[in-house]
Design a protein around this nucleic acid. Structure first.
Lengths: 213, 213
DNA sequence: AAAAACCTCACCCGATTGTGGTATATATCA
DNA sequence: TGATATATACCACAATCGGGTGAGGTTTTT
């Protein structure tokens, strides 16, 4: 198995050095660098090209969340593992939205650190239950809007809406479904009434947001 | 602190009874029932109204995923903790989409079981790193499409698009951003050129699909 | 058999939008 | 200082769309 290359960004000197020695002292892991801030973030990453970045959330200058964004923008393959002293859900949640792959508390044991890094490297996402829950809830809301209002759309109406959200005009839709322009318009009128909207944009917006059709 | 009421659905008799005694034997926890299948699921839940349901994924008759759907439909407040023998990502992932709040492997220690139940009850979502990663990836894709094509939209153009996807007409947008109808139209022309579209619906569709703005 | 949904098509009118111009002011950049 | 990007604004014409109305047909339900 290849060596897992890790780069550390952590302002606390003691922890930074401890982690450096921990990682270098663990079989299968190498620490490609340990820095107190993110000022030369991209340059340092370009030089070392690590597999995993261990990133402190609270840092002077560029903070951890901004750093994650930058990293994922320029090196999408690098996995970022956040670490933090506090169990600050919001911050961690933002970090995850920015592209982080997991996070651990600084109170984690050395063995736990290694475990988490390994997990991230192997495609996992270590995180505590409360963060996981927040992600889950937003996720579940995005996947299935639960009992989305039933607008009682007929099959034909749904078919037309599907075409509409593709950006087609009434004329093109008529063509696509083998019908007349006027028929499509009639259906649209009925759709508008059912969705309580009064323009095609509004309809498309509603359909895409509420995952109708 | 209140007693945490747990109901178990698990076809393996040995495990079911072990869990029953484990939970009843742990301070702060009560087992409100332990059943080998989900045939009378809703009736049993209605009777016991547990805080947490421990649900096996693989079961004869109604399987765990269907069961979760039913539970969340009728008792959205009940937290469902899935358990499974295999580390079957897809199944667990489906369970989570169906509304489960976490999951554990059956190889988990008794202490781990109790810990997970407590975590779920307290609003957490225990899960392994690999599941968390799958959720995260889908989640991040829904939140930020990573490096979506950059259309070089100006701030004003983005602002107008934001209004447009709300279903507003050009006139209303002009009003909202304190500008003229004609100005909005000019911006729209530029937007169309940049997005390579030629109708407002197409623009809205593209914006919502690619998470621009 | 009557009623209710659903799909179909057409015409009118006024409002909105698409397209192609032109033009000024500002700010930033080279 | 000239070039570029951005925001602003207006005009005209053709095309499309929203709203209203009416009216055939089928299928399913009652």
């Amino acid at each position: 198995m290849n060596q897992v290359k890790v780069t550390i960004f952590e302002d606390n000197k003691h922890l930074r050095e401890s982690l450096f020695y921990l990682i270098n002292g663990t079989e299968g892991f190498t620490c490609a660098g340990a820095y107190p801030d993110c000022n030369d973030l991209l340059f340092q990453l370009k030089k070392s090209l690590p597999n995993v970045v261990l990133m402190d959330i609270e840092m002077p200058g560029i903070n951890g969340i901004e750093a994650v964004k930058l990293i994922k923008q320029h090196f999408p393959a690098i996995q970022v593992l956040m670490q933090t002293v506090f169990h600050d859900d919001n911050n961690i949640f933002n970090a995850i939205c920015a592209g982080a792959s997991g996070y651990i508390l600084k109170t984690t044991s050395p063995a736990g650190y290694v475990e988490a890094i390994k997990d991230v490297y192997n495609g996992g996402s270590p995180m505590t239950g409360s963060i996981a829950r927040r992600v889950l809830e937003l996720f579940q809301r995005n996947i299935s809007p639960a009992a989305s209002t039933d607008y009682q759309l007929t099959p034909k109406e749904k078919e037309i809406l599907q075409q509409l959200v593709k950006g087609k005009s009434f004329k093109m839709i008529a063509d696509a479904i083998g019908s007349t322009y006027e028929t499509v318009r009639t259906h649209m009128k009925n759709i508008y009434a059912k969705l309580h909207v009064n323009s095609n944009t509004e309809a498309v917006s509603k359909v895409l947001h509420e995952k109708i059709v």
